[in-house]
Amino acid sequence: MEQTVQLYLVPTPIGNLEDITLRAINTLQSVDFILAEDTRTSGKLLKHLAINKPLQSYHIFNEHGTVEKVIKRLQAGETAALITDAGTPGISDPGFLLVRACIKEDITISSLPGATAFVPALVNSGLPNDRFIFEGFLPHKKGRKTRIDALKDEERTMVFYESPHRLLKTLEQLGEVFGEDRQACVSRELSKLHEENVRGTLAELLQYYQSHVLKGEIVLTIAGKK
């Protein structure tokens, strides 16, 4: 017997608003309420799509305290969509705890396909993509060096998310462990007007971004060890 979906995980555009799918729009129009990482950011998207639904804040800082309340609403028969500021819920964004709780309570989930930053960055990089690993964000402080050291002998292409103010430090640290001649690609402003994919060795990328302005979220793709 087919179960009625109660929670939808809906990807939102990572930049270009035209990347929203028709199914995503229809889903957002059909649910009872929408869980949003930042209600202000999501409010702008929903206004652009002419969708008027109740918004509830759901982000990394309130995720633990919010899950139980959301579960009770779903168990009472309501339907919800979870969206983040950009990309697919659960991929370096809130979502995992709610999905796990829904599975435990036998609440039906549907994860819609759609925008995510690491796939176009990986394909754009020109590095082997038949086998790769996604590492998300490196730890900011504690455990950062340990994580990098553990990847020293990784043979698959590696994909990281990084922020503009930490990129130089990351390129320098990775060059020290992997070797400055390791091929890599920095992708930023993906799907936007000023999209940029800069390819070269870790040393070349470090030199380039020491003299170029860094803005926007970044995906760093690095070749595996030969």
Score class of each variant (00 low, 15 high):
residue 74 L to V: 04
residue 29 Q to V: 01
residue 95 G to V: 00
residue 159 V to A: 12
residue 66 T to V: 08
residue 70 V to N: 05
residue 90 G to M: 14
residue 8 Y to Q: 01
residue 95 G to E: 04
residue 38 D to S: 03
residue 207 Q to M: 06
residue 4 T to A: 06
residue 62 N to F: 07
residue 166 R to P: 03
residue 45 L to D: 14
residue 139 P to N: 06
residue 51 I to A: 12
residue 120 P to Q: 14
residue 23 R to H: 02
residue 11 P to V: 01
residue 221 T to N: 03
residue 226 K to G: 14
residue 7 L to Q: 04
residue 216 G to S: 10
residue 126 G to V: 00
residue 138 L to K: 00
residue 140 H to W: 00
residue 218 I to T: 06
residue 219 V to N: 02
residue 2 E to A: 14
residue 197 N to G: 12
residue 219 V to L: 07
residue 21 T to D: 11
residue 53 K to V: 10
residue 46 L to T: 13
residue 101 A to F: 09
residue 149 D to M: 14
residue 63 E to W: 07
residue 157 T to S: 13
residue 125 S to Y: 01
residue 159 V to H: 05
residue 141 K to M: 01
residue 162 E to C: 07
residue 166 R to V: 11
residue 101 A to T: 08
residue 78 E to I: 04
residue 104 K to S: 00
residue 19 D to R: 12
residue 63 E to V: 08
residue 122 L to Y: 14
residue 152 K to Y: 06
residue 151 L to R: 05
residue 31 V to E: 01
residue 150 A to S: 15
residue 173 Q to F: 08
residue 147 R to C: 09
residue 54 P to L: 07
residue 179 G to F: 10
residue 217 E to A: 04
residue 152 K to T: 12
residue 131 R to T: 12
residue 192 K to T: 04
residue 164 P to S: 11
residue 171 L to Q: 08
residue 210 Q to H: 11
residue 37 E to F: 09
residue 104 K to I: 14
residue 86 A to L: 07
residue 184 A to T: 15
residue 102 C to H: 10
residue 9 L to K: 00
residue 115 A to W: 09
residue 112 L to R: 08
residue 139 P to M: 02
residue 23 R to A: 04
residue 147 R to G: 01
residue 204 E to A: 05
residue 182 R to C: 02
residue 120 P to T: 15
residue 16 N to I: 05
residue 206 L to N: 15
residue 77 G to P: 03
residue 22 L to P: 11
residue 78 E to R: 06
residue 194 H to N: 13
residue 115 A to D: 01
residue 138 L to S: 02
residue 185 C to S: 13
residue 41 T to A: 13
residue 149 D to T: 09
residue 40 R to N: 14
residue 73 R to N: 14
residue 8 Y to G: 00
residue 181 D to T: 10
residue 25 I to L: 03
residue 214 L to F: 09
residue 89 P to R: 15
residue 118 F to R: 10
residue 173 Q to G: 10
residue 160 F to Q: 02
residue 225 K to A: 13
residue 183 Q to G: 09
